[in-house]
Amino acid sequence: MAWFFGSKNKDEVNSGEESSQTIEKAEEKTDDSAAAFPCALEEKPGSGFPSGKPQKSPDDILKNLLDLMGVEYAISREETDDGIHFNISGEYEALLIGKMGQTLDALEYLIGKICHGGREAPEKRIFLDVGNYRKKREEKIVFLARKLASRVADHGRPEIIKPMSPMERKIVHMTLRDHPCVETKSEGEGFYKEIVLSYKKSL
């Protein structure tokens, strides 16, 4: 800014004497701003966060990640009691969702991890969706769970739902929680587990 004003003045004034004065002034101003700069930098690290680490904005992290991935996007944002919901739309929706929602889960997890550090129960959880994929998927899972449950109820033989992420398993468990004769159980190890629907023995 100081440089800009200095050069502007120089153009307006014709006499050599005065122009050298303006240059001096301009230099003075640059010195001032240079002195002010380190202060501005020092303010950044200590944002008064208990762990000493400044809290990062999920909006910025999401945008930076999508920029670095090289995709074009539009983001809608909604803040509710349970957390912040982002919905991304654009040309590369399939890519951002990935196989079985893998990329979407990864982005959601990573943004949450960066924003909340290692804290277990953050006050604002981050929810990511791309082109309403999660919503459509939830409807599909509820439909599948009900269909398989009625099959188990009819035949008494257990049915297995192929491996799903914890959030998707939760949908199945919640859907069939009050089912009169079918119980649900996650089986396997790791992040993706199968769900077994079986006939309730203790009736």
Binding site: M69, G70, L95, L96, G98, T103, A106, L107, Y109, L110
Partner: peptide
């Protein structure tokens, strides 16, 4: 998670 995001970027 980092590998998934990297793979998607590479795939593009």
């Amino acid at each position: 998670a980092m590998r998934s995001i990297l793979s998607a970027t590479a795939m593009k």
